[in-house]
């Protein structure tokens, strides 16, 4: 951590955070718009926000009902 300046540090971490936030935002939008989900919506919201990376992916795979 010593040989990185603050702005270098930010320029490395911020893109990674933004990408993850996009994933969470899209998952939450789909969740809110969905008529029905497999399992309660509030539980999926918690999973999407709290489980890093795999939470939103699990929602896309298992949470949506296509019918």
């Amino acid at each position: 951590m010593d040989n990185l300046t603050n702005s270098q540090w930010i320029s490395l971490i911020v893109p990674l955070l933004i990408v993850q936030l996009i994933l969470i935002a899209v998952a939450l939008t789909v969740l809110v718009k969905a008529d029905r989900t497999r399992g309660p919506k509030w539980l999926w919201a918690i999973v999407i926000v709290l489980v890093n990376l795999l939470g939103p992916i699990a929602f896309f795979l298992f949470g949506r009902r296509s019918d």
Binding site: P15, L16, V19, Q20, I22, L23, P56, I57, F60
Partner: peptide, 18 residues
């Protein structure tokens, strides 16, 4: 439509960068 176009690349990017 199944949003795979979003989560699969993001999954790989996060794995690769972290």
């Amino acid at each position: 439509r199944s949003y795979r176009i979003i989560w699969l690349p993001i999954g790989f990017i996060v794995l690769g960068a972290s």
